[in-house]
């Protein structure tokens, strides 16, 4: 079980820097959380307001997509290095997922 230091060769030297970076990132997390709450509120309000569904559906889906991107890239750290393979497979899965759902909305007879 070889212990390898990935990016920073000597963690002691980088200690202060890392702490600062982590704290900064945490602030970003809180910001994105606020954004997620905001987006959720808009979604619920739109439904309450009773707009037409041809308008509401696409907006709701776009807001959901935005929220998922925030989760993936901030909360799940996909913006960090070393997530290439993870992203490749997640997006491949998302593609298969999209095709599956599209199929069931169009060619299941009714």
């Amino acid at each position: 079980m070889a212990t390898q230091q990935s990016t920073s060769a000597n963690p002691k030297v980088n200690y202060e820097y890392r702490r600062k970076k982590a704290a900064e990132e945490m602030r970003k997390h809180v910001t994105s959380f606020a954004l997620m709450i905001f987006v959720t509120l808009i979604a619920f309000i739109m439904v309450l307001a009773g707009f037409d569904k041809t308008f509401v559906y696409p907006v709701l889906l776009a807001l959901a997509a935005l929220q998922v991107v925030l989760q993936l890239y901030y909360f799940m750290h996909m913006s960090h290095k070393g997530h290439g393979a993870a992203a490749l497979f997640l997006y491949s899965g998302a593609l298969v997922a999209f095709i599956t759902i599209l199929t069931f909305l169009t060619i299941v007879w009714w």
């Binding site: 069931f104 299941v108 009714w110």
Partner: peptide, 12 residues
């Protein structure tokens, strides 16, 4: 219900 669902899932 809808039996085509099985066919799709099975062949996907």
């Amino acid at each position: 219900g809808n039996t085509i669902i099985w066919e799709h899932l099975f062949w996907i």
